[in-house]
Computed example of a mutant assay.
Amino acid sequence: MRSSIHLTAREQRITWQLLEILHSSLDLHEVLRGAYGALCQLLPADHGALCVSLPGDPTAYDWAVADLPPELFAGYAALAPHDFVRSAVIAQPNVVLRDSEMLPRGAIERSLMYRRSRELGMRLEQAMAVLLAVEPGWHGGITLYRDRQRPFSDRDRALMQQLAPSIAAATRSCRRFGDSVRRGDALEAALRREGMEVLVVAPPAALLSRSAGAEALLERWFAPVERSASALPMPLADALAAAAAAPASCTQAAPWVRRTSDGELRVVFVPFVERGRKLWVLELREGTAVAAAPAVWRERLTERQVEVAERVLRGWDNALIAEDLACTPATVKKHLQRIYDALGVPSRTALMVHAAQRG
């Protein structure tokens, strides 16, 4: 992540976990709940809320995270005009604000919102929030509260400001996909991503829908004996079964890759929950035979480490990398650990995110 503030090793680890969570699913609630957990490790808070406005009514909210007394929400319609946090962030969208930048301290303590929270046994002494103006007509929001008079620091504000665009982008992707599923064309949002085809699959391997160019792509990369009109090609079905069986702690399955001398097909498996039904979105992307490492990596890695990193970016596992570089999987594993240490990333997924963010 590009950052103008120095992150400790712990902060760097949690930040990469947060980025992995944001890329791990297209289910809005799952993503925002995971993001909130990571945020509270980086920016300790006693309470918080993450939400998006509801379609057709920007004053009503879908609370993905509501770590606040339920009684506060029961009467929120009457409190909303007196919510100094909400009023402040609406006036300055996409800007992280602390309570000291919202109202003078005396005005906060006289506000109905502050007094009501104290009646409910919750002391909203400090706050930090941002309104994410994701797209015209709707928005998201992040608010963190502290019960004690321990202000959020300048550094806290700067860190949240730098994380906000990534959270907004993930929120946008989830919301677009969810809206299109509800309209019956689950691929509409995903198809806007240039150069990618998409399959929507119901486990174990039933094809529910596909993008316009997906069938031609499948014909190019899979032999007739591997394909079925209503089901995934067998190699992808096997890879999906492995992804579905992975432990819950795995935020994203490793990409499946098929390569030829001319190029490769890379398939990413993304879980999606629609009205309680577990589906999978398969993102298929064709690429050239070589994936180049970002230039800045070459300043930090040895030539051999660059070769390993480039093959990781192509989605290869350790055994395939070892075969291609004529070494052992154990040697590849050692190279990978040195790569992670040199670049300050904790995992394969984080390495891919790191490369994508550097173009």
Rank of each mutant, 00 (worst) to 15 (best):
P329S: 08
A78P: 01
L103F: 09
Y61T: 09
V296A: 02
R183H: 13
L191W: 03
T288Q: 11
E283Y: 12
L26P: 09
S173A: 14
A319H: 07
P136D: 04
Y114K: 07
P203A: 07
A60W: 12
A169Q: 07
G137K: 10
A253S: 13
Q92L: 04
I108Q: 10
H354Y: 15
M102I: 01
L208I: 15
Q162H: 10
T288H: 11
G140H: 04
T59N: 11
Y340F: 14
P55F: 11
S117Y: 03
R2H: 14
S166Q: 12
M113P: 00
R266L: 04
L218Y: 00
R176N: 07
L39S: 09
E307W: 12
L282D: 05
S209Y: 03
L265K: 04
S25P: 14
R110T: 10
A244L: 15
L336C: 02
E20Y: 09
R277W: 08
L120M: 04
P44V: 15
P44I: 12
D156W: 00
G48V: 14
P93Y: 06
A66M: 14
D156C: 02
R110P: 04
L301T: 03
A342V: 06
I14D: 08
R150H: 03
L313I: 13
L54Q: 12
A330Y: 03
L22D: 00
L54N: 04
W221H: 11
A74E: 06
A292W: 08
R105L: 09
V308G: 01
A74F: 03
A205M: 10
C327W: 00
A78E: 06
D154S: 11
L68H: 01
A64E: 00
A212Q: 13
S25K: 07
L320S: 11
A9M: 12
R182V: 06
L284Q: 05
L325Q: 12
L42Y: 06
G359V: 05
D46L: 14
R98C: 05
M122F: 14
V198M: 02
R98A: 08
R192I: 03
A78G: 00
A254R: 15
N318T: 03
L72P: 00
L54V: 13
E71A: 14
W280Q: 14
S4V: 11
R13I: 08
Q357I: 02
E135I: 08
W221P: 01
L325E: 04
P104T: 05
R2I: 13
R183I: 10
A170W: 06
A205V: 10
A214H: 07
S209H: 12
L28C: 10
A322T: 14
G137D: 01
A292S: 10
A9F: 06
V306P: 04
E303V: 13
R123Y: 12
R314D: 00
A206E: 08
W297C: 11
K333T: 06
E219Q: 10
G287I: 14
L50M: 15
L18G: 01
Q337A: 00
